[in-house]
């Protein structure tokens, strides 16, 4: 009975967790992946189709897309370097959605066409607003404490 508890569970857990991402965190990564794809697709269409109409908004779309890709990769990879990169990328998204969201309401002229972040990500079911909050919370809960985990 004793054998089946603590130690066995711990080894099983460590075997199942080779990467930092485990459990519900994988859903977070999946949603990040989908958002990265959505942002990349949108900025591709905007830049190829009509870049001259709103260069600022479309460049921002492309930047947002790149940051989502970086965040997705950084969440998947383990190691303290990737951990720091995930913090930077997700903090950047948080700042982006708040600043652009606010600016697009205060001065709609600045962004004549929508970006992922306009109106706090309204065009994407507000996922761009909710996701960085979940991401930062998740990172805070899962610091790589046990030395430098490779």
């Amino acid at each position: 009975m004793i054998k089946n508890t603590g130690a066995a569970r711990a080894t099983e857990a460590s075997r199942e967790r080779p990467a930092r991402i485990s459990g519900i965190g994988r859903i977070l990564v999946a949603v990040y992946g989908v958002l990265a794809l959505a942002a990349t697709g949108r900025s591709f269409v905007q830049i190829v189709g009509r870049f001259s109409e709103a260069p600022v908004a479309y460049s921002l779309s492309a930047l947002a897309a790149v940051v989502y890709i970086v965040a997705t990769v950084a969440l998947i990879r383990s190691g303290s370097g990737w951990y720091r990169l995930a913090w930077i990328a997700i903090s950047f998204e948080m700042a982006g959605v708040l600043v652009v969201g606010l600016l697009s309401i205060l001065d709609p002229q600045l962004f004549p066409d929508d970006t992922v972040w306009s109106y706090f990500g309204r065009g994407y079911l507000f996922i761009p607003l909710v996701l960085p909050i979940l991401g930062l919370w998740w990172l805070a809960r899962h610091r790589p404490t046990r030395g430098a985990i490779a």
Binding site: G23, R26, V34
Partner: peptide, 29 residues
Amino acid sequence: VSALIVPLAAAFWALVDRSKWSTMVIGTA
């Protein structure tokens, strides 16, 4: 084209990571 890629990525994920979370990733996809 993006839509065509999503199920392939989810299936790849499910084959690499055989846990209940992968089943949810398939659902999300």
